[in-house]
C-alpha cells in the first residue's frame, strides 16, 4: 500500500470518527481481561453499568480488553469518539489511563482499583482489608475447630490485602485460631479454575478448617461448592454469593464495584461529576458483609453484634486494620 493511499484512508477514518462524535455523547465502559461475565469483579462493574442503563435508558459503549496493547487503544478510541465519561475497571489500566487522560483533558475518566493523579480522573479504590476483617471476625466465631481457611486467586498484592485483613479479623477474635492460606496458581487461569479451587478447599478442610473464605474470582465457585459438599462454611466475595449454597455460605464480603461504576455514570449524566480519589471503605458502604434470608440462620445475634462493634470501631479509628499494599507485608499470618 502506498503512503498516499494510507493517508487518504486515515483521513476518511478521521472524518468518520468526527461524524460519530457529533451524533451522540454517551458513556463507555471498559472491562478487564477477565471478561464481563467473570461472576466477580468485571461482572460487578457490568451490573453497575446495566443498572444505569435500565434507570436512565441511556446505553453505553463497551470493550473487553484482550491484549495489554489494547488498554491505551481502547481508552483513546472512546475518548476520541467523544464518549463521556469513560469508565475502566482494573488496576492494570493505571499506566494507560495516566497517558490517555493527559491527552483528553475534556473527557471525564474513572478508574477502579487504582489511583491516577490527573485533574479529569476519578479514582475509586476500596478498603478490601476492612471488609475482610469483618468476615474474619464472623469466620472465627462460626468456627468450631479454631481453624479457618483462605483461598486466593493469584498471588498479587490486591489478594494479599484481602488475606491480611481476614487474618487480622480472625486473630482479633480468637488469638489462638489457625489460618490456612493458599493461592490457586500463578497464571491468569487461577481466576477461573473451579476444580483446583475445590481441591485446595478440600485439603484445607482435611487439615481441620471449617470456614473457608475465597478471593479468587471464578475459582471461588469451586471453593464454595467444596465447602458446601463437606458440610462446612464458605465465605463469598465481591458480590453477594450467599444464594449459591443457602445454609453453607456463611456470608459474603461485598465490594461494591457496581456502585462505583453506577455513580460515575450517573454523576456525569446529572452534571455532578467530580474528580479525585474516592476511598470506599466501611464508612462509605463501599465494602461490607452480606446478611440475607440465605444466611440469617447461620449468623447468631452474638456474631452480628461482634461484627457491628468491629465495624463501628474501624470507622471511628479505634481499630486500625493494616493494609497490606501500603508496605507489602502483613503483621499476622
Amino acid at each position: 500500500m502506498t503512503l498516499a493511499k494510507t493517508l487518504v484512508a486515515a483521513a476518511t477514518l478521521v472524518a468518520a470518527t468526527t461524524a460519530a462524535q457529533a451524533q451522540d455523547a454517551n458513556p463507555a465502559v471498559i472491562f478487564d481481561r477477565g471478561g464481563k461475565f467473570d461472576k466477580s469483579f468485571n461482572q460487578a462493574s457490568y451490573e453497575g453499568a446495566e443498572r444505569f442503563k435500565t434507570e436512565t435508558g441511556i446505553g453505553y459503549a463497551e470493550f473487553e480488553i484482550q491484549q495489554d496493547a489494547q488498554r491505551e487503544q481502547a481508552l483513546r478510541r472512546f475518548a476520541e469518539r467523544g464518549h463521556n465519561p469513560v469508565v475502566v475497571a482494573g488496576f492494570s489500566n493505571e499506566t494507560a489511563m495516566q497517558t490517555v487522560a493527559q491527552e483528553f483533558p475534556e473527557t471525564q475518566f474513572a478508574i477502579i482499583d487504582a489511583v491516577v493523579d490527573q485533574p479529569n480522573v476519578r479514582s475509586v479504590i476500596f478498603n478490601e482489608h476492612e471488609g475482610s476483617y469483618l468476615v474474619g471476625v464472623l469466620a472465627a466465631m462460626a468456627s468450631k475447630s479454631g481453624k479457618v481457611g483462605f483461598v486466593g486467586g493469584m498471588d498479587i498484592p490486591l489478594i494479599q490485602k484481602f488475606a491480611c485483613g481476614y487474618v487480622q479479623g480472625v486473630k482479633a477474635t480468637d488469638p489462638d485460631a489457625e489460618v490456612f492460606q493458599n493461592m490457586t496458581g500463578n497464571t491468569p487461569e487461577a481466576w477461573n479454575d473451579q476444580a483446583r479451587g475445590a481441591e485446595i478447599t478440600r485439603s484445607q478442610i482435611d487439615r481441620g478448617a471449617d470456614v473457608v473464605y475465597h478471593a479468587a474470582g471464578g475459582t471461588g465457585i469451586g471453593v464454595l461448592q467444596a465447602a458446601a459438599d463437606a458440610g462446612v462454611y464458605g465465605i463469598g466475595v465481591d458480590s453477594n454469593q450467599n444464594y449459591l449454597h443457602p445454609g453453607h455460605v456463611l456470608t459474603s464480603m461485598l465490594k461494591r464495584v457496581d456502585n462505583a461504576v453506577y455513580d460515575a455514570l450517573a454523576d456525569s449524566n446529572n452534571g455532578e461529576w467530580t474528580s479525585g480519589v474516592y476511598v470506599m471503605g466501611l464508612k462509605e458502604d463501599g465494602v461490607g458483609w452480606a446478611l440475607d434470608e440465605n444466611n440469617a440462620a447461620l449468623i447468631t445475634d452474638e456474631m452480628k453484634a461482634a461484627a457491628e462493634t468491629a465495624r463501628e470501631k474501624i470507622i471511628s479509628g479505634e481499630i486500625k486494620v493494616h493494609d497490606y499494599t501500603t508496605d507489602g507485608s502483613c503483621p499476622v499470618s
Partner: peptide
C-alpha cells in the same frame, strides 16, 4: 515471574 514481580522487582502500587 510472579515471584520476581511480587518480591524482587515490584514497583510500589497495586499493579504487578
Amino acid at each position: 515471574v510472579v515471584y520476581l514481580l511480587n518480591n524482587v522487582l515490584k514497583a510500589p502500587g497495586m499493579s504487578l
